[in-house]
């Protein structure tokens, strides 16, 4: 079955929006507000939340207790967004996030998911062979570290709080946020201390 042509899809979308407006279910303003917040969402938000958690124990506790509230603290509106759970990496355990059923992703704090996150290959392999998937990303975990794969199947969305790399002592929140990549926030990569910054 091939997808409907773009023109047909757009016509269907417009008919749907018109019907929802006519029934008073959504307004033009609500649509615009959601569009704006979707456009603003990016992994920079998640990275800043991680950097702040590395620096501020009180914020870290909040982040782990209630991710949505921690996001609101950073100025992100979580109205209408699913609850956000945060998975704390430790020296003994690494978290990897996947949605084997579809493509659930913490969009409110990471923006749009990358294409690979939605691919059948990632979704089927991450849960079965997580170490193999990580190795292909060049992510090799220290010996003895266990992996906990988090299959995002229902109403929560999940983000990883990675471990702060050694050698970043004294760094500012901006410096720290810069090394927390989108991939690190779902656990396929680890934050790396850039060689240049280490000098």
């Amino acid at each position: 079955m091939s997808p409907p042509a773009r023109r047909e899809s757009l016509a269907q979308l417009e008919a749907l929006i018109a019907a929802l407006k006519a029934k008073g279910i959504v307004s033009e303003e609500e649509l615009a507000a959601r569009q704006a917040s979707t456009d603003r969402a990016s992994p920079e938000t998640g990275a800043r939340m991680v950097a702040r958690a590395w620096l501020d124990p009180e914020y870290r506790a909040l982040l782990l207790r209630d991710g949505a509230q921690a996001a609101e603290r950073m100025g992100v509106s979580m109205a209408g967004a699913p609850p956000l759970g945060v998975l704390e990496d430790t020296a003994a355990r690494h978290h990897l996030v996947v949605c084997t059923l579809c493509s659930c992703y913490p969009r409110a704090v990471l923006g749009y998911p990358p294409h690979w996150y939605k691919s059948f290959a990632y979704r089927s392999r991450a849960v079965r062979d997580p170490r193999g998937v990580l190795a292909e990303w060049g992510t090799v975990l220290p010996e003895g570290m266990e992996i906990r794969v988090v299959d995002s199947t229902a109403d929560y969305r999940w983000m990883v709080l990675p471990m702060r790399p050694a050698g970043t002592e004294g760094w500012s929140e901006d410096q720290l946020a810069a090394i927390v990549t989108r991939d690190a926030l779902v656990g396929v990569a680890l934050p790396q201390q850039p060689a240049a910054a280490a000098a």
Binding site: D129, R148, D151
Partner: peptide
């Protein structure tokens, strides 16, 4: 995780919303 697929490393886990 290992018993589910009969492979993997002991100690690895899967955490799922049910």
């Amino acid at each position: 995780q290992p018993p589910i697929f009969q492979e993997g490393r002991p100690g690895d886990e899967v955490l799922v919303e049910i």
